[in-house]
């Protein structure tokens, strides 16, 4: 689904240019793309061997398997997010710089979608030594999040978290040179129900977060269409 998609985007772009310049529809452009807007697949695609000597196929990058523990001491895995889309970020409770702003921006997104059980939130602590489960629970409650199944505040061993931060393309690393001891970017990642990264947003920029709020429904629509097609 990826390659044809990329091609069709290519065609679409080409068509738009041609249409814009020529002002008419050319034969090659009559095939309408099925989706008007389609969020990109981010990350390095993987090559997969295809059958009988054909050129290898590619599939979009997917987030690896993970096992975390949330503020209710529940184990959460990729399965927890099956059939859902989710927004994820990396923070820590005592973060002196960007986290409060970032979490208040994520809260803004949460407020918009809290009525929709197909949208989940996952905040990872990058300071698991300090952010014990009681600390995470306290943090979540203070932020006004009572339902852990909608917004997970999760922890795992340090290395697991940092590997995941890389996997979600939201760089986080220990940096003794910065206040608080961690450098991290405040990026929000939007993940679809097939573990694919569909958007990256700077959680410190209101306009970027507005873009997330606008794009999330596009992804939900795509997911709903896919479900409808699969049900046929």
């Amino acid at each position: 689904m990826n390659i044809p998609f990329l091609r069709s985007v290519g065609h679409l772009l080409l068509c738009m240019v041609v249409i814009a310049s020529a002002g008419l529809t050319l034969p090659g452009c009559t095939q309408k793309p099925t989706q008007e807007t389609h969020l990109p697949y981010l990350g390095e695609p993987e090559l997969v061997a295809s059958t009988a000597g054909a050129a290898p196929d590619t599939v979009p990058y997917t987030v690896p398997s993970f096992t975390l523990t949330n503020q209710d001491r529940q184990t959460i895995t990729n399965q927890t997010f099956a059939g859902k889309v989710y927004v994820t970020d990396f923070f820590f409770a005592t973060c002196p710089s960007i986290c409060p702003k970032m979490q208040s921006e994520l809260l803004r997104v949460y407020e918009q979608f809290k009525g929709n059980p197909n949208v989940l939130f996952l905040s990872h602590t990058i300071d698991p030594a300090h952010d014990s489960i009681p600390v995470l629970r306290d943090y979540a409650e203070r932020l006004g999040i009572k339902d852990a199944s909608r917004w997970h505040f999760a922890t795992a061993p340090h290395d697991t978290i940092f590997a995941l931060a890389r996997a979600y393309m939201t760089a986080a690393q220990v940096d003794k040179g910065v206040v608080g001891g961690y450098a991290h970017s405040g990026t929000f990642a939007l993940i679809d129900s097939h573990r694919r990264i569909r958007g990256l947003y700077d959680g410190m920029e209101k306009t970027e977060v507005d873009r997330l709020i606008k794009e999330l429904p596009e992804l939900l629509k795509e997911e709903a269409n896919a479900r409808a097609t699969a049900a046929k």
Binding site: P100, S104, L107, R142, L143, G144
Partner: peptide
């Protein structure tokens, strides 16, 4: 606007 953040700040 100095409004703080929920019960965190």
């Amino acid at each position: 606007q100095g409004q703080g953040l929920k019960r965190l700040i």
